[in-house]
Design a protein around this nucleic acid. Structure first.
Length: 1031
RNA sequence: GCUCGGGUGGUGAAAUGGUAGACACGCUAGCCUUAGGAGCUAGUGAGGUAAAACUCAUGCAGGUUCAAGUCCUGUCCCGAGCACCA
């Protein structure tokens, strides 16, 4: 027999397989389907690394076995090719990113073929292919065109500027990497450093596109229950989303109204004694404010000009004036304020109509005629320091669209609440008072400790601090502290966490809503602006951080929770440390004696009654920053049109302030392709390089035909990978490239229904938070759109551990411990590489590379090769067959559960058995080759053909264990004395307990142990153990 | 600090509560030879023995059980992720 020559055999069979193409998935084939997904790689310049090999080999083994078991297997691959490294490389070498990508994918493809990964190459996708990113852009447009309201996806008209969209723009403090010149998502900043280049990042304000992933936060947690992900992957996702249920509590700021003069403007057909005005007047006066409530003239046949003249004649406005309006009173205010010669303090408007198209559609001629309904919003903004707008969610007259638009035009604070009566018509309306008062809103998960609150803390970025400016007597000191805190990066803030710092806001007091106690207000950077409300109630007795802070600044520590079991006396009057566990409420007036669990509920209920709190849910998850200021990404298909904005404002009679209307690129004009450019350098202004390409940026508005500009931001490279598993199921060659299809998802529902969901998704542990979360989010969105029929894209997710260098360190070029798969394949062959990488250790655990271990596998393959010479026309002995058939069962089980290290070990064990045989039958040898074939496809195919088989081993049926070989004649039974194994006896399979007992007692060593002893008990486990308990 | 993993020979590691260390590396001895990064045979947890028997061994301390690497309690160490999340 000739010598085993890996490279020769492997080349030969790869050629044959390429020609036959037996790895293709066939839509609707009458077989059970199996969709096996591996994470597609980013085609970097350095080629496939061993980490890729580990995942791909494991999945290939699985896929090959599933095909042999008669499944219609979809096992696709593609390229996640947008991204910075390619762009940076292109900049450095002066080449096109698309060319570089092509080169790299060619290398990757060749490497994958050299390792015999049985991908369905017909379905290969590339995220940078315009035919592909056409649909990435299409999905983005759907995000732009839809909103998520009341847990439902709704379509939003293009000219609707007020309803919140799934894709929206926000002026964001983004994490700016000065080296990459790019904005990074929070997830991409590790310890304050850029994930890609390691440079120190800082905060920079920039308008960014955001995706409202938080709207789906609850479903992203709950639907995990429908999947079979590894437990630790589920936990990581849940922790990342970080849901916490608690209470939002309002602390009123004291003595707010001392120098304030209030003007209340009542509604159409109302008067100073109507609605909530008498009650509100009382509440304001209680807090020291002066109130003027005019009875507006001709309230049933109003004329706005006449009414505002009446107010102007009877009241002198100044910088301490607060105007409060209800319904039509707001129209009076909006007409009157631009006429004022002074700047007033505050304008608060409830349920104000913007025009006469009202919800109830009742004709109101008097209203139509009362004014021209045109307002100078810019002038109003100029003349008022602070504006708040309140809309009633259940208003039967004024729709929320009115109040929303007013709030937007005035850049005002905006609240949507439910009135006691619709249109806020009740005689007591707590929401109205709340808008008027200054509140600090806090979030807590421990409402049961509210009585122990001894101060309130604001984060340095909290906007209320500026509102209190004039009441804070030490404002300079406060301002200094805030500036210092802002200068600190996130990193420094956390690094310096050993010592908490803060400044008290002198002159400001907050009122604890549960007991009306006054507490101090502090600003401190241990409170984060990004979580909850950016403010907390501090309970030093029962929170470590508050405790530390209170100790340092000598603030009162008030104990309100004691241990359930008082005798334990763990709580030490707050002397040593905070008691943060649950317990029983004390010092909490009528709540005393309640457990923490009960207390949280009862306190929240009470606050709700007072209108000063309600249960809330908070998430750590933030919305997804979706803009990148770079070239090599999908262009965001939106257009800014100034002309459209002018036209719309003219219609509304609103002055133009240079704003733009956003116009989506029409879907039939997708893809919006990247222009060819000379220079890919990002700009210093933070704009994408696309901004410099006039030809591309300047565009005719698809709506009005006027001059308009394109959005120049591109998408992050998480975008294309968020739906690629759908693309595979759609079949690249036939569907995605078909330009006639207006909606590839909907039009190919049948294919998607057949293949989805992905049965097994295999990838790296590093992607189980971000990529997995993002793509699940996109999928749910697609589900809500009706494009896909299944809620969760991935039924099962597994992840492989990383492979370390032979020195036990992470592989890196600088350490010089990188293993190049090409070299291994060249020297030892693909079969050795594949088998070793599975044998290296448990699939999901990290393992260190070992050349010696690789050698061992290489030797094993030689031994298999040599054993082929034993094949003869013989009868195998029964013992061997029995063992072989047991291995069929356990090998199958191992592969199914990704226990691939023991799978390979078992292949070795079988070979060791064959070593001991003189000859082996064709049939038994064939079975062994089939078991080998997923791991060592070339070797198996070669030896299979040497058996005279005409067809490929991969179209053969996976071995089935035959029952007759699984039944043994004899069995080894361990004999235990007091739990210790003292001997082993060979018993007949059919032996009874008594017979086994007899055999055991006949054994000389056992007999010696039992001599003169009393047997108190015998435990007999059939086929396994007989255990004597003796005294 | 919190949440997951994980601590088993000289090494990588196996073990549905039921014979701890499968398989492989390494090592030792021997054989073979076309002298190689080869192959074959035997041995290899520690102690003990001529060989057995036997004793001790799964981070540490307890517990449950006829029987614990495996289950429970506490504790120490290592790794990963999150991290002032109220």
């Amino acid at each position: 027999m000739e010598k085993y020559n890996a490279s020769e055999i492997e080349k030969k069979w790869q050629g044959v397989w390429n020609k036959n193409g037996g790895d293709k998935a066939v839509d609707f084939l009458d077989k059970p389907k199996h969709y096996h997904l591996v994470e597609f790689p980013y085609p970097s310049g350095s080629g496939l690394h061993v980490g890729h090999c580990m995942g791909y080999t494991a999945s290939d083994v699985y896929a090959r076995m599933m095909r042999m078991r008669g499944y219609n297997v979809l096992f696709p691959i593609g390229w996640d090719a947008f991204g910075l490294p390619t762009e940076n490389y292109a900049i450095k070498t002066g080449r096109k990113p698309s060319e570089v990508t092509k080169e790299n994918t060619d290398i990757f493809r060749k490497q994958m073929k050299s390792l015999a990964y049985s991908f369905d190459w017909d379905r290969e996708v590339n995220t940078t292919d315009p035919d592909y990113y056409k649909w990435t852009q299409w999905i983005f447009l759907q995000f732009y065109k839809h909103g998520y309201i009341d847990n439902k996806l709704v379509e939003i008209a293009d000219d609707d500027t007020t309803t919140p969209r799934m894709a929206y723009q926000a002026e964001m403090a983004i994490n700016w990497c000065p080296d990459c010149k790019i904005g990074l998502a929070n997830e991409e900043v590790i310890d304050g450093k850029c994930e890609r280049c390691g440079a120190q990042t800082y905060k920079k304000m920039q308008k960014q596109w955001m995706l409202r992933i938080t709207a789906y936060a609850d479903r992203l947690i709950n639907d995990l229950a429908k999947t079979d992900y590894l437990e630790k992957i589920k936990t990581q996702q849940i922790n990342w989303i970080g849901k916490s249920e608690g209470t939002q509590i309002n602390f009123e700021i004291k003595n707010d109204f001392k120098d304030k003069n209030f003007v209340f403007l009542h509604a159409y057909g109302d008067n100073s004694q109507g609605s909530f005005w008498p009650w509100l007047k009382l509440e304001v006066e209680k807090r020291g404010g002066k109130v003027y409530v005019p009875d507006l003239p001709n309230t049933d046949e109003p004329n706005i000009q006449e009414q505002m003249n009446f107010v102007l004649d009877n009241y002198k406005f100044d910088e301490n004036t607060v105007v409060v309006t209800h319904s039509l009173g707001g129209v009076v205010a909006m007409k009157m304020i631009p006429e004022l010669k002074v700047k007033i303090d505050k304008l608060v408007m409830m349920a104000t109509p913007l025009h006469t198209d009202l919800k109830d559609k009742m004709p109101r001629p008097a209203l139509d005629a009362c004014t021209d309904w045109k307002f100078d919003f810019e002038k109003i903004k100029e003349n008022v320091r602070d504006i708040a707008i309140l809309g009633d969610i259940e208003d039967h007259i004024v729709p929320l669209s009115h109040t929303r638009e007013i709030a937007e035009k005035l850049s005002a604070k905006y609240f949507e609440k439910i009135g006691q009566m619709t249109h806020f018509n009740n005689d007591i309306e707590p929401e109205v008072l709340k808008v008027l008062l200054d509140y600090i809103q806090v979030f807590t998960t421990r409402a049961d400790t509210l009585f122990g609150c001894t101060y309130v803390v604001l984060s340095p970025e909290h906007e209320a601090i500026n509102n209190f400016q004039f009441s804070i007597s030490n404002f300079q000191e406060v301002e200094e502290y805030i500036n210092q805190a802002k200068k600190k990066s996130d990193l420094e803030r956390t690094e310096l966490q050993k010592e908490k710092t803060g400044v008290k806001l002198d002159g400001v007091k907050a009122i604890n809503p549960i007991n009306s106690e006054e507490v101090d207000v502090w600003v401190a950077d241990y409170v984060l602006v990004g979580y909850g409300t950016g403010a907390v109630m501090a309970v030093p007795a029962h929170d470590e951080r508050d405790f530390e802070f209170a100790k340092k600044y000598g603030i009162e520590i008030k104990e309100v929770i004691t241990t359930k079991n008082k005798e334990l006396g763990i709580m030490n009057n707050g002397e040593s440390r905070a008691y943060t566990d649950y317990g029983v409420m004390i010092n909490s007036s009528s709540f005393d004696g309640l457990t923490s669990e009960e207390g949280k509920k009862k306190v929240t209920e009470k606050l709700k009654k007072l209108g000063l709190g309600e249960e809330t849910v908070n998430f750590k998850l933030r919305d997804w920053v979706f803009s990148r200021q770079h070239y090599w990404g999908e262009p965001i298909p939106l257009i800014f049109c100034n002309n459209c904005a002018k036209n719309k404002n003219k219609e509304l009679g609103i002055m133009n302030n240079g704003e733009n209307t956003i116009v989506p690129v029409p879907e039939d004009q997708l893809p919006l392709t990247l222009p060819d450019v000379e220079n890919y350098e990002p700009t210093d202004t933070g704009e994408s390089p696309l901004a410099g390409i006039a030809d591309w940026v300047e565009v005719k508005c698809p709506k009005c035909g006027g001059k308009a500009r394109r959005e120049t931001d591109t998408m992050p490279n998480w975008a294309g990978s968020s739906w690629y598993y759908i693309a595979y199921a759609l079949n690249q060659k036939e569907k995605i490239k078909d330009k006639k299809q207006a909606n590839i998802f909907y039009e190919n529902k049948k294919e998607l229904d057949y293949w989805m969901p992905v049965d097994i998704y295999n990838g790296g542990m590093e992607h189980v938070t971000l990529h997995l979360l993002y793509s699940r989010f996109w999928h749910k969105f697609m589900y809500d759109l009706g494009e896909v029929a299944i809620i969760e894209p991935y039924q099962k997710r597994i992840a492989h551990g990383i492979i370390l260098g032979s020195d036990g360190q992470k592989m890196s070029k600088s350490e010089g411990n990188v293993v190049n798969p090409d070299e291994i394949v060249e020297k030892y062959g693909a079969d050795t590489m594949r088998s070793y990488i599975m044998f290296i250790g448990p699939y999901d655990q990290e393992s260190a590379w070992s050349m010696a271990g690789l050698q061992g596998v290489y030797r094993f393959i030689h031994r298999v090769w040599n054993n082929a010479g034993k094949v003869a026309d013989v009868q195998d002995n029964k013992e061997f067959l029995s063992k072989l058939h047991k291995y069929i069962v356990s090998v199958t089980d191992d592969i199914e559960n990704f226990r691939l290290n023991t799978y390979v070990a078992k292949l070795m064990e079988i070979n060791n058995l064959i070593d001991k045989l003189d000859k082996i039958s064709k049939e038994a040898w064939g079975l062994y080759l089939q078991l080998l074939s997923p791991a060592m496809p070339h070797l198996a195919e070669e030896l299979w053909s040497k058996l005279g088989q005409a067809e490929s081993i991969f179209v053969s049926n996976w071995p089935k264990a035959e029952d007759r070989y699984l039944v043994d004649e004899f069995v080894n039974v361990a004999v235990q004395i007091n739990g210790k194994v003292r001997g082993i006896i060979k018993a007949d399979m059919t032996a009874s307990e008594d017979e086994v007992k007899g055999l055991a007692q006949a054994d000389p060593i056992i007999a010696k142990w039992l001599e003169d002893k009393k047997i108190t008990k015998i435990i007999y486990i059939k086929d396994k153990i007989i255990s004597f308990v003796i005294q």
